[in-house]
Design a protein around this nucleic acid. Sequence first.
DNA 1: ATATTAAATGCAAATAATTTGCATTTAAAA
DNA 2: TTTTAAATGCAAATTATTTGCATTTAATAT
Lengths: 129, 129
Amino acid sequence: MKQTKKRNEIYEIFLHTTSPLTAEDVANQLKGKIPIHLATIYRTLNKMCDENLLVKNVMQDKKSYFELKKEHHTHHLICKQCHQILDIDICPLKEFEQNIYEKTGFEITDHVIELRGICNQCKVKESIQ
Amino acid sequence: MKQTKKRNEIYEIFLHTTSPLTAEDVANQLKGKIPIHLATIYRTLNKMCDENLLVKNVMQDKKSYFELKKEHHTHHLICKQCHQILDIDICPLKEFEQNIYEKTGFEITDHVIELRGICNQCKVKESIQ
DNA sequence: ATATTAAATGCAAATAATTTGCATTTAAAA
DNA sequence: TTTTAAATGCAAATTATTTGCATTTAATAT
């Protein structure tokens, strides 16, 4: 792969964000900074996934979300109110997958979890009103 | 809501299938039986979700999957080889969600899990060759 | 330093799942 | 049986994403 300004700028964004981003999110962050076509962003993001720099993940809104690939994968808490996405490091499926394997012989190789609800701040705000 | 032949036929399909179906899956099952437009299928499926007869769920292939709504929700094991979808009744997130709530105050109200891997049959087949 | 080559980019057009507007039909209520 | 609101078919719109192609650019060999 070739080192370009655009590629670096995109990668920088992920280095400074913990929550998953769509191609459009990336485009918005680059707006005003550098001119870049949305198709290029898509191509770059997908390539970075192939190179194992990022991971892609389709959420219930039918959009692809990208984020930095980490050794130990993380999951996310998505607040339905303020749309903020919180990272959690614990994976609740370790044991479960082992269990399933023992019981059924089905070997789970990868999983996606989407957790939605109301974050603490929003709940506090709600209770005040 | 109005009782129609088409609606009933669609609902019947779900009563006799355990795995989640796309609108196209439904269309294929109805092909030859009754003439029905794909748009009608989509509208019916969505309405049935509003009526809490079905639940919709977007998977990593970016398609919407529908299935019968049950009291206790189920999860699925998707075989990457034979594409069969297996139902599992256990939900691995009960405790976890409680835990998250206690630690962070984030109240998880709904979750989606997609579990992919290789089913027992496919693994056996593989080992034979 | 320069020429060469393969990858990256921009742009417009294609794709694919799903939705929607509108005219027509049909089930249920009056 | 008439009335009315919901259901249906069809074509066209929508939305996120991909792709073909011409052009530019970074990395490589000379």
